[in-house]
Design a protein around this nucleic acid. Structure first.
Lengths: 188, 188
DNA sequence: TCACTAAAGCTAAGACTTAGCTTTAGTTTC
DNA sequence: GAAACTAAAGCTAAGTCTTAGCTTTAGTGA
């Protein structure tokens, strides 16, 4: 979502965008991400390369846009009855998805081809939305909760830091431990 | 440090590496990072482009190596007399350097052209070393300290997450607040 | 000193990228 | 409803980067 003027669906721009994004997904599945080139994607999408270069600038920005789409959560977080269970389950799933090889590729792509930080911000907003849903639900039950920023600092940020900078030895217990530590040591 | 066989200084490989790294630094200063190309760097370094392609693979991996060099701390953290002051000063400086426009470019470059995660791991190791120095000094004074991993989770990771995913509104008070929160809420 | 090996130099072919101009699809106005 | 208008896509050619194969050189070890 870097420089796309957001036309109404059905317009030509929207069709081209769908075709190009679809081509990226298909070719990634068929040939692997590293085999993609702008001319290849354009051919599959049925457009000329110059269209892709004009709209996205280069392959990295295009891959960044597609990666953000893939990182969008597909469903609201599951309800396990209380804050601790909800947050633990969400964090475990987040860590598992994001630290998997494809997850890491998507995160890197999203960060990478993103001159203005829009796509990175979008990724963070997705996580914040999911967390907010969990916290809002807990408050509706009468539980007291930390705020979203605190959860991001104490749970999301450590997981993401390790995914990006220290890919070794990341397992679900780490997510569980971060959530426990957040909810125990709380007197605010 | 991706695929460099680490020859003894004085060897031809070492000379070429120095010349190429130097060329990247010079041209970045003169023309800006976005103007760099492999043929341009090679010409300045006095080598042929194929040498650069063979050794580094592509421009991104080369930029990643140079970025890691620049992210290496130049001096051990300053001694301010106690743990809280030392850690606060270190975190403030870290945040200021890393969140500056050039700092952000280096971090992205380091992460970006880094297929195996070696360079990212090196960046993290630099921070861990600095923190370890601060903590060791504090223990020598008789202070009790958290361990390095805890400081990384609670101070470094939140700062880095925001630098990468939410570049807006990052100021030194945030670093100070993370350190205070770490040292206050501690009963382990 | 001589053989050996790893890395750099060289060259040509191929692929990607850029820029300018033309054409088309979709919108707005009369 | 038709004609002018605009934004985006198509097309083409030139330039640049990238790759691959082979040759040469510098440094190492017998």
């Amino acid at each position: 979502m870097s420089r796309k003027p957001m036309l109404r669906p059905g317009g030509r721009s929207a069709r081209v965008q769908q075709a190009v994004h679809g081509a990226v997904r298909e070719l990634t599945a068929e040939l692997g991400r590293d085999a993609l080139t702008v001319p290849l994607v354009a051919a599959r999408a049925g457009v000329t390369p110059s269209t892709v270069y004009r709209r996205w600038g280069d392959l990295r920005e295009l891959l960044s846009d597609v990666a953000v789409e893939r990182l969008r959560p597909e469903a609201p977080p599951a309800d396990h009855g209380d804050l601790s269970a909800d947050l633990t389950a969400w964090a475990e799933e987040f860590l598992e998805e994001m630290s998997s090889p494809p997850g890491r590729v998507y995160i890197r792509d999203a960060l990478l081809g993103d001159p203005d930080g829009t796509n990175a911000g979008q990724c963070s907003a997705y996580a914040a939305e999911q967390i907010d849903a969990v916290l809002t639900r807990a408050r509706a039950r009468g539980e007291t909760t930390p705020d979203v920023e605190t959860v991001i600092d104490k749970v999301v940020a450590p997981m993401m830091y390790r995914i990006l900078f220290r890919p070794e030895g990341l397992e679900t217990p780490y997510a569980r431990q971060l959530v426990s530590s957040l909810l125990e040591t709380r007197e605010d």
